[in-house]
């Protein structure tokens, strides 16, 4: 995985030199370990800042919305599906983007790694499936496979769906992953128990909207939480308002979410709001046989009408 970077740099440099694109979006080292930030390279020299390791969890499709110029973008499997969603939703044109595909074996769960240490993590290096983490209270060598982001552990589309060039050979997709074990578990709970579960899940939320901002799907010019006339949801951390925010945000992502995990990754409180988006993802598969972002030519289920759409919930 670390080896990708040379190829990524080479492609990006070439694209910028030839003028095929005006900008390449990739990752650069963040100010904190495990927090790589997006890097917008506009000259071939900028490409030198690019990095690629197991902490590039941010979904770069987020930065494509309504752009007018030609853009090169580095895309993992989930990013590429979000790009497809962007194209089908007319947020960017296919001709405008040059997708540098990066087959991905999963990104690291920064919350989980941080929880293994008492003190702040100072540096993280990686080497052949291992992470060497140095914190104030010592150094530990950890197995990468144990520390995958939760969405990466159950990822079924590791290779980019669309790409103009690949940075490495496609990786083998995970077979027989049970994506919805946790969702099914909650589905069987009686309402009161469900209520307690979600009450507990969102009790830590501080309404910072990092999840919304990190989400490539949340591109509305005015988000419903920022509307004041009418005000659909209060702005405090009142538990009902918090839940209204999370429930509605999840609904807005129904049939569009590619489970890239950006929301959970961005959350400073480590809330697993993917439980909601995953439930709707499962419902979309069950009701419409739809997985988002796999095909450029197929319209999403919520903007098409079929005679055999399920309607058994209607009296």
């Amino acid at each position: 995985m670390v080896g990708y970077i040379d190829k990524i740099k080479e492609i990006s440099e070439r694209l910028l030199k030839e003028g095929t694109v005006e900008m390449v979006i990739g990752f650069q080292k963040g100010t904190l370990p495990m927090m790589n930030t997006p890097c917008f390279a506009k000259t071939p020299e900028d490409v030198g800042n690019f990095v690629w390791d197991s902490h590039c969890g941010i979904n770069l499709a987020n930065y494509l919305t309504d752009r007018k110029e030609k853009i090169g973008v580095i895309a993992k499997g989930c990013d590429s599906r979000s790009i497809v969603t962007h194209i089908t939703e007319n947020k960017i044109k296919r001709e405008q983007i040059f997708v540098i595909g990066a087959p991905c074996k999963g990104m690291m769960d920064r919350h989980k790694i941080a929880s293994l240490f008492e003190t702040e993590i100072r540096s993280v290096a990686e080497n052949d499936g291992k992470l060497i983490v140095t914190a104030g209270d010592g150094e530990k060598t950890l197995e990468k496979a144990d520390l995958l982001q939760k969405n990466c552990a159950v990822c079924a589309h590791r290779n980019p769906v669309i790409h103009d060039e690949l940075a490495a050979d496609p990786v083998e997709d995970q077979k027989d992953v049970d994506r919805y074990a946790d969702v099914r578990e909650i589905e069987t709970m009686p309402p009161a128990e469900k209520w307690d579960y979600f009450d507990d899940l969102f009790s830590a939320c501080i309404r910072c909207y990092a999840c919304r901002n990190a989400c490539p799907l949340c591109y509305c010019p005015t988000c419903f939480v920022d509307e004041s006339q009418p005000q659909w949801v209060g702005k405090s951390t009142d538990p009902i308002d918090t839940k209204t925010f999370h429930f509605l945000r999840a609904y807005h992502c129904a049939g569009r979410c590619t489970d890239c995990g950006s929301c959970e990754r961005a959350c400073p409180m480590g809330i697993n709001m993917r439980m909601l988006t995953k439930k709707l993802e499962k419902d979309c598969i069950d009701a419409f046989g739809w997985e988002p972002g796999l095909d450029l030519n197929q319209r999403p289920p919520l903007d098409t009408y079929k005679m055999d759409d399920p309607e058994d919930f209607i009296k």
Partner: peptide, 28 residues
């Protein structure tokens, strides 16, 4: 998500179906 399913109802009633309307109101 913790609201009992029986609290939310969907139905489809044409403008001529006053009888069905009364039935469904009662059921709901």
């Amino acid at each position: 998500m913790g609201i009992e399913p029986g609290r939310l109802h969907f139905s489809w009633i044409s403008s001529a179906e006053a009888t069905k309307f009364v039935d469904v109101v009662t059921q709901v």
